[in-house]
Design a protein around this nucleic acid. Structure first.
Lengths: 173, 173
DNA sequence: CTTACGATTACGTGGCGTGAGTGTTC
DNA sequence: TGAACACTCACGCCACGTAATCGTAA
């Protein structure tokens, strides 16, 4: 028997994923402890394994529920339908590549080599939909994985040593 | 000056899309009529054209808003970032193709040639996440585009002539 | 008068993520 | 006793779609 965290860990999933599957009725734990904790059985783990396999095929949770309810009925059909969908999606993405390739050839987009300062960098990231929180997380990850390069990066943006050190300390905290 | 429906029609968009862009502040009409109707100018149409172009490149609305606010700053960077994202997404879809190819080779999925009856068909579609409404719409489309084939399809599912005719009449209504 | 359009508000979609606030186990 | 885990709401994300209920234009 596994707790929700243990099962999630075994499959590389987040707890919230299993909570979600439980709410949907896709994967209900075999039992609950006296305190109300979910207790997953080996059979549950097997079912989750199937779910993960079908998710790796890109099937929706609804389709997966259908397959697990009546495997003979729909597994093949659902997989073949997904293949057709995949063809369409691949074509869409390739279209997007072509659109971008054309746009990048436009004259007003000639590469400009002015190095970015901090303000321009922040504006750019925000334009890509990155929030302040996202940026904080990004600094934290950078600091954790390669602190030296992080320092050099901040210097390249024109931050003074004091400002840079303050930011790095915040990223570590 | 265009009304919202006219502008949407010109660009092949739904009205709700323009309402959405207005709420986000991405595309606000130049003016409102006395009755409160949105009135879009030619400049608005030009801006919408840009938005559509960047959407065809797969950029998020947040990224597009950033580009339109400061084109020189981020257009190139945003497009290049999207290219990188596209590479990742394409690889993911190809992975899904591979997973499906492997699954379809599994012995328990040998092609079974038992023709589907109505119940099995409905269950299968529902398993793919299709609602009753979706199916109604599907019948309506089928009936509108190729009524004869629709009739033959229904017969192949085992529906009697009366039942089939009733369904087709409902699809036309 | 009709009917085709417009308005606003609120809620739904998918597949989770992210808190808040509280209880349980080790 | 404190940290790490668990619980249950409830709301957020993205790019819209949909329905309800109303007012306006041709």
């Amino acid at each position: 028997m596994f707790t929700i965290g243990a099962l999630a860990g075994r499959f590389g999933l987040a707890r919230s994923t299993l909570l979600h599957y439980d709410r949907l009725g896709l994967l209900r734990p075999a039992a609950r402890s006296r305190a109300g904790y979910r207790r997953y059985s080996e059979a549950d783990a097997g079912r989750l394994d199937q779910i993960c396999t079908y998710r790796r095929a890109g099937l929706s949770l609804a389709a997966i529920a259908g397959i697990l309810a009546a495997p003979a009925a729909g597994a093949r059909a659902a997989l073949e339908a997904r293949l057709v969908e995949l063809d369409r999606e691949l074509e869409q993405l390739r279209d997007q590549q072509r659109v971008i390739a054309r746009l990048l050839r436009r004259p007003e987009l000639v590469p400009d080599r002015t190095p970015l300062d901090k303000a321009a960098w922040v504006e750019l990231l925000r334009a890509s939909g990155m929030s302040d929180q996202d940026m904080d997380r990004w600094h934290a990850t950078f600091e954790a994985t390669d602190p030296e390069r992080h320092g050099r990066f901040l210097a390249a943006l024109g931050l003074g040593p004091g400002e840079a050190e303050a930011l790095r300390a915040r990223s570590r905290g």
